[in-house]
């Protein structure tokens, strides 16, 4: 099968600092990838390169058949097909939940308002907060806000979803409600790249776990092998630290 994301020898620097070093990665459609690694290893930078929130300086990134270059047309085309969920939700505080969801379909997909709102309500029901549609983000709990953020991305009917630590700003009792939504999404066959430290989620949902350290992909494997039979010492150290408590 044709991979939906291809990264070939991708390098990125922040000034003198080499964040990504020769990243090679192929993602097949419907694949569910979990990316983990120590803080500062470049996980966020990696997935933010996929929708050009960060610019890579060397190598090639092709998403859904479109190469990422400085061409604004290509960038906007890719962003329409790639949804992203952030650690801090980044909902638009001056709009109601419904307006947050309908915004991009109306302005980017040029959908009539009524249809966009219908779709928004559909996804709000799916993340189980339809009754909050008329509220402002500031009036919702963290877990609710993150589910709204997921629904907002889904409203664009993306082919790929990127998650950057979607649960790490949440209180423990809210993590489950967000993970449940993500698990459902995975079951429906969404292509997902997820930076997370929720190893339970990785074990049950992912079909590949990627371990990054110092800007490199150190190891990747299917979850059972990855957790039970890690190859490199760095992976072992990381796993012992993270599973230790």
């Amino acid at each position: 099968m044709q991979p939906i994301i291809t990264m070939r020898g991708v390098d990125k620097w922040y000034g003198q600092f080499h964040v990504l070093k020769g990243i090679n990665l192929d993602v097949q459609p419907k694949e569910r990838i979990v990316i983990c690694g120590p803080s500062g290893s470049g996980k966020s930078t990696l997935i933010r390169c996929i929708n050009r929130l960060e610019e890579h300086q060397k190598g090639q990134i092709v998403v859904d058949g479109v190469e990422l270059t400085n061409d604004l047309k290509h960038i906007e085309q890719i962003r329409r097909e790639v949804g992203m969920v952030f650690q801090h939700f980044n909902l638009f505080p001056h709009m109601t939940v419904l307006e947050n969801l309908a915004l991009a379909p109306i302005w980017v997909r040029k959908m009539p308002k009524a249809e966009a709102e219908e779709r928004a309500m559909f996804y709000l029901k799916r993340v189980r907060i339809a009754e909050q549609a008329k509220k402002y983000p500031g009036q919702l709990s963290g877990g609710q806000q993150q589910r709204v953020a997921i629904a907002r991305s889904l409203c664009m009917n993306p082919k790929i979803m990127l998650f950057d630590e979607p649960t790490s700003a949440l209180d423990p009792e809210m993590i489950k409600e967000v993970l449940d939504v993500m698990i459902e999404l995975a079951k429906e066959g969404m292509t997902m790249l997820c930076v997370t430290h929720e190893m339970g989620f990785a074990k049950s949902v992912a079909n590949r776990v990627i371990f990054m350290d110092q800007g490199q992909i150190v190891e990747q494997n299917e979850p059972h092998e990855f957790f039970n039979n890690p190859q490199s010492d760095r992976t072992k150290l990381f796993l012992s630290q993270i599973l230790g408590h």
Binding site: N51, N90, L91, F92, A104, S153, M156
Partner: peptide
């Protein structure tokens, strides 16, 4: 305006002027 607002608008595929008119300037 926090950087996250710009990034969320970008990630949704809004153009520069849409981002400014709908998200950034009102706030």
């Amino acid at each position: 305006i926090p950087r996250g607002q710009f990034e969320a608008a970008d990630a949704l595929g809004l153009s520069y002027w849409q981002k400014m008119a709908k998200i950034v300037l009102p706030q």
